[in-house]
């Protein structure tokens, strides 16, 4: 009976070891610091790493071109702005004033190059629907 117990412990150790190996690989590749845009500007130690930033799409300087899968905008939080160039499919709900989450890194010119753009699709779920009516639709007007 003790032999089987030893075997069992060895088997579980192997499983545990394999999982630990996977976890450290996953942590190295998939571990992303996230912060608001203004915090990111203050913390230079994150300027050469891949990070996830959240903030609002600023009202000015938004250039969105769904046909060429590219958007330029400023990410704003607490009145501080990070210039962003995003390449990829533009989500349906991307528009000025909306909360977005982007992922990428800062380039040498100080422009944040993002390859992930997530919009919070929540306006219909939130308690209030605060956005005004009648703004232009990004995709339609160009």
């Amino acid at each position: 009976m003790t032999r089987i117990r030893t075997k069992l412990i060895v088997a579980l150790l192997i499983v545990g070891g394999a999982v630990a190996y996977l976890v450290q690989a996953g942590v190295r590749g998939g571990w992303v610091y996230s912060m608001d845009a203004d915090a990111f500007l203050q913390r230079t130690e994150f300027h050469d790493r891949r990070v996830r930033l959240s903030g609002k799409v600023a009202w000015e300087n938004v250039e969105s071109n769904p046909a060429s899968l590219m958007a330029k905008f400023d990410l704003e939080s607490n009145d501080q702005k990070v210039p962003v160039v995003y390449r990829g499919p533009i989500p349906d709900m991307f528009r000025p004033g909306h909360d977005v989450v982007i992922e990428g890194r800062l380039d040498a010119e100080g422009v944040f190059q993002a390859d992930v753009l997530l919009t919070k699709c929540a306006s219909k779920y939130d308690e209030a629907s605060p956005h005004g009516e009648g703004e232009t639709m990004m995709e339609a007007d160009q």
């Binding site: 996977l22 690989a25 996953g26 998939g30 610091y33 996830r52 992922e103």
Partner: peptide, 16 residues
């Protein structure tokens, strides 16, 4: 600092 994991975290651990 808040840390998030992206899809590759799960793809590298949970998928195998």
């Amino acid at each position: 600092n808040e840390i998030t994991v992206d899809q590759s975290f799960y793809n590298r651990i949970v998928a195998p």
